[in-house]
Amino acid sequence: MRINPKYRQLTFVSLMSMIMTFIMSGIMTYVLEGGFIPHFVNDWMRDWGVAFVIAIGLNLFLPAQIHKFANRFKKARIVYIFVISLIMTFILSFALTAFAMNGIVPYFVSHWTGSWRIAFIIVFILNFFLPNFVGKLVSKLMVQQPA
């Protein structure tokens, strides 16, 4: 399957969101459920679907704004990765925690902040390596244009 180059950015955003939310939702499900429980995979796939829908929307609109902000700094790449990881994990961990706990219940904030901390560390590290991998994958999927 080859993809038209005009869909390069959409393909990149989709794959980044898919891979990142797959990893993040798996770890968050493990943390929030307290380990590998009998219905872990079912809960993980449910959480992944929720996370992907949120992430794809955020990834279509946030990066341009964050790039503008990050470019004001000497170490723009690190600032960009820090800010995008912070915002994405803040929103996604909130949604996944609320979803897993069936709403905002007592002790919600402690569960959310605990899962947010873990999610942020993982996503921050992934954001250094995953874009290069996904970029290469997307390049392989593109239709070769005649010279």
Rank of each mutant, 00 (worst) to 15 (best):
K68Y: 08
W48R: 02
K6H: 11
M88C: 12
L62D: 07
A95N: 06
I84F: 00
W48H: 07
M24T: 12
I121M: 11
F128L: 09
W44I: 02
V123P: 05
M101S: 12
V105E: 12
V31Q: 14
F73T: 02
F99H: 14
H67E: 09
P38L: 10
F40Q: 04
H111F: 04
M28K: 04
I54C: 11
K74C: 00
T21P: 08
L96Q: 14
T89I: 03
L58T: 13
I19Y: 01
V41D: 02
N132P: 01
V105L: 07
F120M: 05
M16Y: 07
T113Q: 06
I66Y: 01
R77Y: 02
P106L: 11
L126P: 06
T11M: 15
V123A: 08
W48G: 08
I118E: 06
I37L: 09
T89Q: 11
Y80T: 03
H39G: 04
N102G: 09
W116K: 02
I23M: 06
R72D: 02
M88A: 01
P63T: 05
F73D: 02
A119P: 08
P63Q: 12
A51V: 04
S115W: 01
G34E: 12
L15C: 09
L126D: 10
N127Q: 15
G34Y: 01
I122Q: 02
M88G: 12
G34F: 02
V79F: 06
M88K: 04
I91V: 15
F52P: 08
V31A: 13
T29C: 11
F128V: 08
I121L: 13
N42S: 14
G49R: 03
K74S: 09
Y30S: 07
R72N: 15
E33M: 11
T113D: 02
F108Y: 04
F124L: 12
I118R: 05
I56E: 11
N42D: 15
M88Q: 09
N42P: 02
I27Y: 00
K74Y: 04
L130E: 11
A119N: 03
Q65Y: 00
N102L: 11
T97Y: 00
S93H: 04
F22W: 03
N42E: 15
T89G: 01
Y107L: 09
L126N: 06
I23C: 08
N102C: 06
F128C: 09
S115G: 06
V13A: 10
N42T: 15
L15Y: 00
I84L: 08
N59S: 12
I54F: 06
I23Y: 00
S17P: 08
F36R: 10
I121C: 13
F22G: 15
R8W: 03
G34D: 04
V83D: 05
F94R: 08
I87P: 11
A76Q: 13
T89W: 03
T11E: 14
